[in-house]
Amino acid sequence: MGNSADDKDLVARALAGDRDAFGVLVDRYAAQARRVARAVLGDPDDADDAAQDGFLSALVKLAQYDARRPFGPWLMRIVANAATDRRRRRNVRRAEPLDPSLVGGGPRPDTAAMRSELGERLRTALGELPERRRTAVVLFDVEGYSHAEIAGILGIPEGTVRSEVFHARRRLRTLLADWKEQVP
C-alpha cells in the first residue's frame, strides 16, 4: 500500500489536472489492482481490463474521494466493483458460472510452462470459492488490508469479512499443506 500522506498529495495534484501525479498513483497501485481484479475474475486478461476500468473510473470520480480516508481502500473498492461488474456481464454473455479452468487464464502455451503447479492449484482453489470469499482473503493476506478496510471495500459487515477470510484460509491452507507434503 502506498504512503497515505503522499497519496493524498498525489490525488490533490491529479485533481488539479496533473497527469503525471495520476500516473504515479497508477504505477503505485497497478500490481495490487490487477491482483484484486484477478481474484474476482480469474482470467488475467479480463482482470487487466477491469483494473484499467477501475483506474479510469477512479480518475473520473476523484473529486468524490474523501482525503481524510486512505486512498488504497477507496481505489480497491472501485476496482473490485469494476471486476464484479465485468464478471456479471461475462456471465450473462456466457450464461454459465465461472469455469475454474479460467482461473489460470486457460491453456496458453506461451505462458503455461512458466506457472508453478502450486500457483495453478491455488488459482483453481480460489476460483472454486465464492467471489466475496476469495476477494476478502486476497485483500487480507496478500494486500494487507484490515478487516475494517475490507468491510468498506466490499460493502459488507466486518464480522462477515472475518468469517469469509476464515473459511477461505481453511480451504487454501489445506491445499497448501497437501502440496508441501507432496513436495520432496
Binding site: 484477478r38 500457483g119 491455488l122
Partner: peptide
C-alpha cells in the same frame, strides 16, 4: 503463495 499465483503475467 497467493501473491505469486495472482501476479500479473505482463
Amino acid at each position: 503463495a497467493l501473491r505469486a499465483a495472482l501476479e500479473p503475467r505482463d
